[in-house]
Design a protein around this nucleic acid. Structure first.
Lengths: 245, 245
DNA sequence: TAGTGGTCTAGACCACGAC
DNA sequence: TCGTGGTCTAGACCACTAT
């Protein structure tokens, strides 16, 4: 049963649909609803939680806007899954100047275990001397190496990462399937930088070539930081796309 | 009275609330509802258009999500206005690495009239040899010159621009007040570039310093391109912020 | 045909802001 | 105290999908 409203109580008022949303998000966090799964119908949820169908609808609408759920008329409501086309649309902003966006291929250079730097500790909210996994890779777009990328993860949270046979191209699906971690959002900070000699070697450009630096912290359903990713991109034939509205 | 639904007609089905939204957006386009104005209450609109309050509510909710309206419980619903704090939040993504976002100050270098380049014609959907206004300015953030910016406008659409006594810092308000043009959204493309000698002089940096290049096309309520803006930014102490969710 | 989400309505009541 | 937007309910019907 749902908590009652706090009407005329003078306390923090929380709409019923927000409480419903919270209880449904908890099912995602706890994994009782898995990515890709069909969830119960509005009518069933309304009966189960003891609220009207309209209230359930509002909660589901909010979660759909948050891209946690996908609704399909006539079929039902599904838990969003880290499927490639969805990830591409939601989390990948680097697109070719001409042509359609495509999912980049990756070549892994290194997987290391180390102690977190001060910057990594701050971004991932880790304690002093926390161990981290670092993955370095080169990503290819439209046949051209275009991105040098370093991913940092908490070695404790991602226990067993180093023992994996390899690192797949779509790591968000890996996080979901192997550790049950859902990437729900990310915040990016962009700067202009210059290619180091190492960058230049990987990207076949001159040292000092201007690169677009993307600093991304991705977070989970509980808004805890999960992954730090620094990408250095050659923007000769591609750009970062951002829509304001 | 609203158009009827096209139910079981086999034609494109358009929900009532979408038709309501369209008719209300037309009021914004035609200027019968002005920026900042209080619009009629839900009940009044429902009576006027002959639909239920719930349908009006849905249309207003959509327009609020599009940032065309601002709703305030107890007060009413207002047309969004090009007020500085709102513009800053909605359209300005360059923020200091430390500290709060602030609205940049501007120093105008030049206002020219010229024939549109091929690139400008493509971005602004202008005809061959169309005349344009170009504004060049340097923008200062946190006391430091950080952005060199070129704004291109159709000289026909912005008739009389050159006769203005000066160019204000907040040009979106100028577009609204002088020409009745509302900037409703923008799409940006980012690349990394290098400072030209001219850039370097304005920004007090070395020629060749990596700069963040932002290429923005802003559009109006009818989705027509209105303004092209190319900004070249020193990202030593600031960054472009982008949230994905 | 059955079941799902989507739309639309009508009405009650609540929280908020201004008077 | 009044008017506003916000929430919640109950019920009817429509559009879409699968069977």
């Amino acid at each position: 049963m749902m908590a009652q409203t706090a009407r005329s109580a003078g306390f923090a008022y929380r709409p019923l649909y927000a409480q419903v949303r919270e209880s449904l998000v908890r099912r995602l966090i706890e994994g009782s609803w898995q990515p890709g799964q069909l969830i119960p119908s509005e009518v069933d949820l309304a009966r189960e939680l003891g609220v009207s169908q309209g209230t359930i609808r509002k909660a589901l609408d909010v979660m759909t806007a948050e891209k946690l759920l996908i609704r399909r008329q006539g079929r039902g409501t599904f838990v969003a899954a880290p499927e490639e086309s969805r990830i591409l649309f939601q989390f990948f902003r680097l697109v070719p100047d001409q042509g359609e966006p495509t999912f980049p291929e990756s070549r892994v250079l290194r997987v290391d275990r180390d102690v977190a730097t001060a910057a990594e500790r701050a971004d991932l909210e880790l304690s002093e001397a926390a161990p981290v996994i670092r993955i370095e890779r080169v990503r290819t777009l439209a046949g051209r190496p275009a991105i040098v990328e370093t991913i940092t993860l908490s070695a404790e949270r991602f226990a067993g990462f180093e023992a994996l046979p390899g690192v797949p191209n779509n790591v968000y699906r890996l996080y979901s399937e192997r550790w049950g971690i859902t990437i729900a959002g990310a915040s990016e900070k962009l700067k202009a930088g210059a290619a180091t000699p190492a960058d230049a070697g990987e990207l076949s450009c001159a040292p000092g070539t201007p690169l677009l630096e993307i600093h991304r912290v991705a977070h989970d359903l509980e808004d805890r930081p999960v992954e730090l990713r620094v990408s250095r991109c050659l923007t000769a034939t591609l750009h970062y796309s951002s829509d304001l509205r």
